Amino acid sequence: MPAEYGAMYPQEGDTAGDAPTGYVSMFADFFGDCIFWLPLTVFVVEILEYYKLRISQLSPLGLIRVRNFEYTFRALGIEPLVGDFRRFYQLTVQLGFFSFRQREHAPKLMLPPKSMTKWKTKFFYIKAAAITAKLQFRNVMGTIITENISIPKVDTVDWFPRLRIIGSFKLEYKQLWVLWMMIGKLVRKARHMLREKNDEEAPLWMMFCPDFGGKVDIVRCGAGEEGWNRTIISNFRMPDEAALNAVLSGGKGHLGTLGDPAATGVPKEIVLKFGDKRQRKKMTHEAVSVPPWY
């Protein structure tokens, strides 16, 4: 974790709702099964801002679906969009944390882990400026609007035939280091290259092979060729240095309702009859306006 992110352990007896002013809680399991890292990708920022969520309000089981969707679509050569994410998943809330469940009849993109235990007790704090989304604290007792857009089918989206289930796996330190190299050094006239032990160029996917023992080099770009990592970095939302270096006042924040176990937020289903058809409708507490995304 970069030093300027100000990562620190909680004090004994703290909960994730006790993040100091100017800090945000991060669960350790985000950085394991969820294949999550910082800085945030543009897609993760767009998800948080569309659903009006603070990152610490997402459970790991919800975040893993967000991350799996993004890298699955990128691996298949499809731009990940919030509107398409909504075709697969419905926002839900349970025990005070938000998550996503697969929409009925939507094709599967992943096989999620059966459970993640004790994740609420494993957390730390970082500066909120490192999370480059417009942080909001969504009311877990508010209405969750049921999505009614079409699910992906051959006749609704042109990329449907390319869909595949891509399993998730944890990245090792070496692999994360290579990714950080690629977004951390902006070189306009050079690009990063993966080399095998014999110095021959290797395809980038080989850095994810557990037995790869090569290295990363920086090579000069050819005529008219732009540094490749300038393309990579456009997929990330980089933190503002001035905001990271700002002096924080300290003291406890006001996130005491984070993970409120009384806020189950599970709406009841009522069957409404329309002629000979039956339609299920989710009933929840209060109206909350959610912006459209098409």
Results as ranks from 00 to 15, higher is better:
Phe73Ala: 10
Arg74Tyr: 00
Ala75Ser: 15
Ala75Asp: 11
Ala75Val: 09
Leu76Ser: 04
Leu76Tyr: 06
Gly77His: 07
Gly77Cys: 03
Ile78Trp: 05
Ile78Thr: 03
Glu79Ser: 12
Pro80His: 01
Pro80Met: 11
Leu81Lys: 15
Val82Ile: 05
Gly83Pro: 00
Gly83His: 05
Asp84Trp: 00
Asp84Met: 02
Asp84Pro: 09
Phe85Pro: 05
Phe85Val: 11
Arg86Trp: 00
Arg86Ala: 06
Arg87Gln: 05
Arg87Gly: 03
Phe88Asp: 05
Phe88Arg: 10
Phe88Met: 12
Leu91Ile: 15
Thr92Tyr: 00
Thr92Val: 15
Thr92Asn: 08
Val93Asn: 09
Val93Thr: 01
Val93Arg: 10
Val93His: 03
Gly96Tyr: 03
Gly96Gln: 04
Gly96Ser: 09
Gly96Asn: 08
Gly96Phe: 04
Phe97His: 13
Phe98Gln: 09
Ser99Arg: 12
Ser99Asn: 15
Arg101Asp: 09
Arg101Pro: 00
Arg101Leu: 10
Gln102Pro: 04
Gln102Lys: 13
Gln102Tyr: 10
Gln102Thr: 13
Arg103Cys: 12
Arg103Leu: 13
Arg103Ser: 12
Glu104Val: 15
Glu104Trp: 06
His105Asp: 14
His105Lys: 15
His105Glu: 14
Pro107Trp: 04
Pro107Arg: 01
Lys108Glu: 11
Lys108Arg: 12
Met110Ile: 15
Met110Tyr: 06
Met110Pro: 00
Met110Lys: 03
Leu111Ser: 14
Leu111Tyr: 10
Pro113Val: 02
Pro113Gly: 02
Lys114Ser: 13
Met116Tyr: 01
Thr117Asn: 11
Thr117Gly: 10
Lys118Thr: 02
Lys118Leu: 04
Lys118Glu: 04
